[in-house]
Each structure stands twice: as C-alpha cells, then as structure tokens.
Design a protein around this nucleic acid. Structure first.
Lengths: 248, 248
DNA sequence: AATTTATTTGCGTATTTATGCAGTATTAAA
DNA sequence: TTTAATACTGCATAAATACGCAAATAAATT
C-alpha cells in the first residue's frame, strides 16, 4: 500500500470518527506504528489534522478558539433583551452576579432612569457605565470566586429594602427542586434578595434547565418569572408554566 | 480516550455549567482523579478555566482589570514597592482608589495574610485576585467617575472601625494646604478614612507635589508618611519633612 | 537493463509522556 | 475542633515517541 493511499485512508477515518489512534491504524494498515506516526506528522504539517499523543484529532475539533468569547453569548443576549423590557423608569431593581446579568446591564437603554442595587462587583462595574442610573452597592466581606458581598450584614441590609424586581442569574433550576446553588454564603444572600423583592425573575439559558446543585436557594413557588432564550411555548418549559410561573 | 478529548469534554462541561467537580469528571471519563487534576492544571495554565479546590470554574466568572498596563508608570511601581513594605501579616489596612493604589495591590506578595478594607470598586477587584487576603467592601451609593462608594452610610461605617494603616492615593498635596481634592462626596469619605486609621500614608508621584485643588481633605499634620518615587533626601521633599512627616 | 540516487519503512534503543497508586499534607465543612 | 474530602509528592509502569541505522522500495539516470 502506498503512502498516499494510507493518507487517504487516515483522512477518511478522521472524517468519520473525528479521531484516530496510532495503534488502530497500525493494525488496520499493517504497517508499523512508526510509519503511522510519520504519516500523521506529515498530515499535521499539511494542516489536515491535529496530531496528539496516541493518535490524531480532526481539525474541526478546535475547542480552543471560541473559548475566548463567553459561551452562550447569543442565548444570553436574547435573555437580556427579554429581561430589559420588564424594567421601567423609576423602578428599584435588584441584580445578582453572573454573565447573564452583565449581558442584561449592557443592554439597558441609555435613557433609562432607574436605581439598581447589587452585591456583585462585576455587575456594579458594568452598571457604572450607564449615564442615568443610580447604583447602590451593598458591601461587606467579599467572596473571592463569586466576586460578591456575603455575610449577615448583607442579609440585614437587604431586609431593609423592598425592590420592584429581582433578577437572578440562575445556575440550576429544576421543577422538583427549584433554584439550587453550590455555596452557602451565596445562597444566604440570594435568599435575602428574593425576600426583599416584589417580583423574582430567574434568568437561565436552557442548558441550565432541569439541573440541580447541592443546596436549595428557593422553591419554584418563590419565582414569579422565568426567562430563557427559548420561545415560551417550548415543551421543556411546560412543567414550569404548570407550576404557575410566567414564562417569557 | 485521548487527553485532548478529555480536555474538550471538560471545557464543554465548564461552558454549560460554569463549573466542574473533579470527582464527577473522574467517573464520567473513567480516569483517576489524579489525571483529572492534572488536566485541570494544564487547562488552568492555558487560562481556559480557573482551578479551585474540588474542581474548576469558568473563566468568564472572573472579571479582572486588563486596562492597567497602559497606566502603570514606573514611578507608581516604585511607590508601590515602598508602600508594600509597610504592610505586615495580620494588619487591617484601608485603601482608597486610584491607579497608584492598584499598583500597590498588584505588588502585594501572595503569602501576605492581612485584611483590606476599601470603598473603591477597581481596588476591590484587584484585591480579589490575591489568594490570602480578606477583602471588605464598604458599600452604598456608587459614584460614577470615581467608581467608589460615597455618602453618609459609608462615613458612618468607617467611623466604626480602626485600621492600622490607611493608604491614600493623592491627587494634590501641598505644604500650605495639605491634601486637597475636587469632589465633595469623595472628600467626605477620605476624611472618614483618615479618622479611622492609626497611621495615614499618602502616595503621590512627584508631579502631584505642591499642587492644590479646590477642596480640603486634610491638613499636612494629619498625614504620617509620604511616599513618592523620589529618594527621601530630595530637595523638594524637605518642607514636608520639616512638617514632621516621615518621607519614604 | 543496470546502476545510481532518493525515499520509505521497520527495528532496536533511549527518552518522554501519561497514568495510577500510596502515603502524607492540606483544605473545607460539620 | 474534628472529620472527611481533596491535593500534593514521589514513584512505578506502561504506552508513545524520537532517533539512528539498515534494509527495502521506488524513482531517476546512464
């Protein structure tokens, strides 16, 4: 079998399976692994595949490229636009942290005249870019990972206010278990946020639907609206609607 | 399964859930947790995720300030290094805002174990990058330009604490008029910071020496130390030294 | 056709990489 | 503080790789 034929065979395998193992090819083509390795090396140099330890991968396997851009950006933009329409002049709005909330803040119209309260540093920073809105940060001990204030002081301060809307960037939401999260300190604050709001809006990309974390933030009954990137009539959203939640 | 495939899988999980647990991945990919840990370590080194105890988090959760390279003048780096040596383990340190303060925070050694209090959002964000220090943010209404908390609430909260050191990024300092600034709301907070600190340290590049703004922050008598990029024996610093200030 | 030249291939060996394991140290949670 | 989970270290092993060389093959030249 000629080299060219082997190369064609290898590329064919790559196209079908997205990967090849040197050991497999060696058996299939009855040549030594050395030869296969040299083949893969050549094909790599021609940019036809990506050689890795043990074999090779399809070029289309590039997960490194679109990593820089925040994942699910288009979904989050759709969610942000839907959420934005709920905010009216003069409102007092409570915001959590997370990339979806950031997206929401970015999408706020410049002429909007409202007051926003948050415990998240990135959210606050983004809010400060807008000309007409007043930003209130509830401070205390800052949590490193979440980059937000936590602790009893925050809960206390939140209990003293009553907001029109509370937007929660949601990690996990499930019909059975409601909204769940990982860290106790974060949950304490989110609960306080929910208590101090007239309406609670959960923002979640559809991938987060029907997933559960270890600890409970609130039951589904405490959530007034759910915003995803899907159209509200989607099948997956039915159970949430049955529970009395407004789907947007 | 090839290593790259595992990496791709891990990144996919990260994209969906914003976090992964080593134990989960170990089961899902049927490799030892050691291997997962090494995978996460590699991906972390490639800045594709943030490794934490028990797993990893999405990078998009972590906002950092990347705009500072432009500002960081060598003068400010020198000042930062001098200021850094004043901070010891266990101290409670108060920080204002400003690029010089950011430079100081960047220069803090990773092993430093201290608590920092600030009212500046950028300063807080930078502080959160350090592994061992506790960060407390005193929140309230945020000022757009200065990106810091202001108002009576902040002043009140500051009055309840007593710090070892207070570092002030200084816009204008003058032998006659002391430290001066522009905005009333900022000045109120800076004054409160000075009152609640045992030692007040002014950080100022030499260009700011002998300049005056409209409104008084404090007299020179209230300042304990002055740090510039110059050697302490410089002629221009003499008058400050005569007033009893320690020049560093 | 014969010979030279260049290329390809396989093999042995040394080296590197990947992975898991065990014991210990560290960290986080109750 | 105690306890359980997680991380790190060094080591062992197996797999994969690189390298030099010689044999085999193909291509080119006379």
């Amino acid at each position: 079998m000629l080299k060219k034929e082997r190369h064609a065979y290898i590329m064919h395998e790559i196209d079908i399976h997205n990967k090849v193992l040197s050991s497999d090819l060696s058996l299939q083509l009855t040549v030594s692994e050395d030869t296969i390795r040299r083949d893969l090396q050549e094909l790599d140099e021609k940019n036809m595949l990506t050689k890795v330890h043990g074999g090779a991968l399809s070029k289309s396997f590039h997960f490194t490229l679109h990593n820089n851009t925040v994942f699910s950006q288009p979904e989050k933009k759709i969610i942000a636009q839907k959420a934005r329409d709920l905010i009216k002049d003069g409102m007092l709005v409570l915001l959590s942290g997370g990339t979806t909330i950031i997206e929401l803040v970015k999408s706020l119209p410049p002429e909007l005249n409202a007051t926003f309260i948050t415990v998240s540093i990135p959210t606050a920073l983004e809010l400060l870019n807008h000309p007409n809105i007043e930003v209130i940060f509830i401070g205390n001990k800052l949590l490193k990972n979440a980059q937000m204030s936590v602790g009893a002081e925050v809960v206390q301060r939140l209990s003293e206010i009553k907001c029109d809307l509370c937007f929660l960037g949601t990690n996990s939401i499930d019909v059975e278990n409601g909204i769940t999260d990982l860290e106790l300190e974060v949950i304490e604050v989110k609960r306080a946020m929910i208590r101090s709001a007239k309406k609670v809006v959960s923002l979640a990309i559809s991938k987060k639907l029907n997933t559960t974390q270890r600890m409970l933030v609130c039951r589904l009954e405490d959530v007034d609206m759910l915003i995803t990137e899907l159209v509200p009539t989607e099948e997956i959203l039915k159970p949430y609607h049955s529970k009395g939640i407004t789907i947007i």
